[in-house]
Deep mutational scan, measured.
Amino acid sequence: CHSECLGNCSQPDDPTKCVACRNFYLDGRCVETCPPPYYHFQDWRCVNFSFCQDLHHKCKNSRRQGCHQYVIHNNKCIPECPSGYTMNSSNLLCTPCLGPCPKVCHLLEGEKTIDSVTSAQELRGCTVINGSLIINIRGGNNLAAELEANLGLIEEISGYLKIRRSYALVSLSFFRKLRLIRGETLEIGNYSFYALDNQNLRQLWDWSKHNLTITQGKLFFHYNPKLCLSEIHKMEEVSGTKGRQERNDIALKTNGDQASCENELLKFSYIRTSFDKILLRWEPYWPPDFRDLLGFMLFYKEAPYQNVTEFDGQDACGSNSWTVVDIDPPLRSNDPKSQNHPGWLMRGLKPWTQYAIFVKTLVTFSDERRTYGAKSDIIYVQTDATNPSVPLDPISVSNSSSQIILKWKPPSDPNGNITHYLVFWERQAEDSELFELDYCLKGLKLPSRTWSPPFESEDSQKHNQSEYEDSAGECCSCPKTDSQILKELEESSFRKTFEDYLHNVVFVPRKT
Score class of each variant (00 low, 15 high):
residue 400 S to R: 12
residue 351 P to T: 10
residue 309 T to M: 06
residue 330 P to S: 11
residue 348 G to T: 10
residue 120 A to P: 02
residue 249 D to F: 08
residue 157 I to L: 05
residue 253 K to R: 08
residue 351 P to F: 06
residue 285 Y to L: 03
residue 235 M to G: 03
residue 218 K to S: 15
residue 343 G to S: 14
residue 334 N to H: 07
residue 169 L to P: 06
residue 320 N to R: 08
residue 134 I to V: 12
residue 234 K to G: 05
residue 307 N to R: 06
residue 127 T to A: 07
residue 328 D to R: 13
residue 186 L to R: 09
residue 332 R to K: 10
residue 358 F to D: 03
residue 355 Y to Q: 00
residue 388 P to Y: 01
residue 195 A to L: 10
residue 167 Y to H: 05
residue 147 L to N: 02
residue 185 T to L: 14
residue 289 D to R: 03
residue 264 E to N: 04
residue 360 K to Q: 15
residue 176 R to Y: 06
residue 365 F to A: 09
residue 144 A to Y: 06
residue 171 S to R: 05
residue 153 L to Q: 08
residue 157 I to T: 01
residue 153 L to C: 14
residue 143 L to H: 02
residue 140 G to L: 03
residue 297 M to L: 12
residue 129 I to C: 15
residue 380 Y to R: 09
residue 103 K to I: 09
residue 118 T to K: 09
residue 111 E to G: 11
residue 146 E to S: 02
residue 191 Y to C: 09
residue 403 Q to I: 11
residue 217 G to L: 01
residue 246 E to P: 11
residue 286 W to T: 10
residue 265 L to S: 10
residue 288 P to G: 14
residue 152 G to W: 05
residue 324 V to S: 02
residue 298 L to A: 12
residue 159 G to W: 02
residue 113 T to H: 14
residue 394 P to L: 10
residue 140 G to P: 13
residue 360 K to L: 11
residue 399 N to C: 03
residue 246 E to S: 08
residue 107 L to D: 04
residue 347 R to F: 06
residue 193 F to Y: 05
residue 364 T to D: 07
residue 262 E to P: 15
residue 159 G to E: 00
residue 382 Q to P: 13
residue 163 I to C: 04
residue 154 I to S: 01
residue 288 P to A: 15
residue 322 W to L: 05
residue 214 I to V: 12
residue 200 N to R: 07
residue 209 K to F: 09
residue 354 Q to T: 14
residue 181 I to G: 00
residue 188 I to H: 08
residue 268 F to S: 02
residue 229 L to R: 04
residue 278 I to G: 00
residue 270 Y to V: 10
residue 363 V to A: 12
residue 241 T to Y: 09
residue 133 L to Q: 00
residue 195 A to S: 06
residue 253 K to W: 14
residue 286 W to P: 03
residue 157 I to S: 00
residue 252 L to V: 10
residue 192 S to T: 02
residue 266 L to F: 06
residue 114 I to P: 00
residue 212 L to P: 04
residue 157 I to P: 00
residue 382 Q to R: 08
residue 388 P to E: 00
residue 191 Y to M: 13
residue 391 P to N: 00
residue 189 G to L: 12
residue 108 L to E: 11
residue 347 R to L: 09
residue 146 E to F: 08
residue 315 D to Q: 04
residue 257 D to Y: 12
residue 353 T to M: 02
residue 305 Y to S: 11
residue 314 Q to V: 13
residue 156 E to L: 10
residue 295 G to Q: 12
residue 156 E to D: 05
residue 175 F to A: 13
residue 117 V to Y: 06
residue 207 W to V: 11
residue 181 I to H: 01
residue 204 L to K: 03
residue 220 F to A: 13
